[in-house]
């Protein structure tokens, strides 16, 4: 898994460097979670909509759409589309838009996101539809950023999920404690987040969002669970590159040539 995530992290940096823009910090905080979900937990056919059991797939929504590079790179490394496409990230006419777009029909992309605070409502709608269709095979996984939870619409949808008793929905919070302007605690604190989620009716799990075994174990457990589950994944923004870790400044900045080299060396070591 470490080899896989290292390769994915390197591609994320190359994409952002090539595009001269993008969001490395938040991509690196969630990339381990994404890797485990796609490789070990979720059932999403590589053939995508050509698969006969396409409808039975698990649904994944990257509500924090700015971490698109993490999703694109994981999908490409898993084989949903060619790694060559990664070079087009943020380029005119590319299927790899700055933020995920379902319009471009890129295999693996379920929904369009980018404007924060909307993915969970979409997930609630999908979970309701799956229940109406009596689809018991599929689970909806929604990954949010912690900063994103400052959006009021998130709490509207948390209430809705509980009210509808959605046991086919899993909320994952990539809790890296940083947002563009600094620390989440200073700007608009979400604490105590676990208590809040419990009060909203969720069965809450707190894990180390960079520990592959913990992620896998917990995600498999919540996938089987018949309760409404939320996983708070404690993460490090910029995880994997020493000079990016825990630096809000690396939220939305591309590395220069020298920084790219240094980071790639660290990831190769």
């Amino acid at each position: 898994m470490k080899t896989f995530t290292n390769a994915v992290r390197q591609d994320i940096l190359k994409m952002i460097h090539n595009a001269k823009s993008g969001h490395p910090g938040g991509a690196f905080s969630c990339v381990d979670i994404l890797s485990v979900l796609y490789k070990k937990v979720m059932n999403v056919p590589i053939e995508w909509d050509k698969a006969i059991d396409f409808n039975q797939r698990d649904r994944f929504i990257l509500s924090k759409g700015h971490a698109s590079t993490a999703l694109y790179a994981v999908l490409a490394h898993c084989g949903y589309f060619s790694k060559d496409l990664l070079k087009g990230f943020r380029m005119l006419g590319s299927k790899l838009q700055g933020h995920p777009s379902s319009r471009t029909k890129l295999p693996g992309i379920e929904v369009s996101t980018g404007s924060l605070g909307q993915g969970l409502s979409i997930g609630v709608g999908m979970a309701l539809a799956l229940r109406l269709d009596e689809n018991k095979d599929s689970k909806v996984f929604v990954l949010m950023g912690d900063g994103e939870m400052q959006e009021g619409s998130v709490w509207e949808s948390l209430m809705n999920a509980n009210n509808q008793h959605l046991n086919n929905l899993v909320v994952i919070v990539d809790k890296n404690n940083l947002q563009i302007d600094g620390s989440t605690c200073d700007i608009k604190s979400l604490e105590p987040l676990d208590e809040k989620l419990k009060a909203f009716g969720f069965e809450v799990y707190s894990i180390d969002g960079h520990n592959y075994e913990q992620i896998e174990q917990t995600m498999i457990e919540v996938k089987k669970s018949t309760k409404l589950c939320a996983v708070i994944a404690n993460t490090v923004k910029g995880k994997g590159v020493s000079f990016m870790e825990n630096q809000a400044g690396w939220h939305g900045k591309a590395p220069n040539d020298e920084q790219l080299q240094k980071a790639l060396e660290e990831l190769n070591a």
Partner: peptide
């Protein structure tokens, strides 16, 4: 969806995606 129009539109989107 209760008095929560943003959530209603997002939920509508999710249902439509399916």
């Amino acid at each position: 969806c209760g008095i929560a129009e943003q959530d209603m539109m997002g939920t509508a989107a999710g249902l439509a995606y399916e």
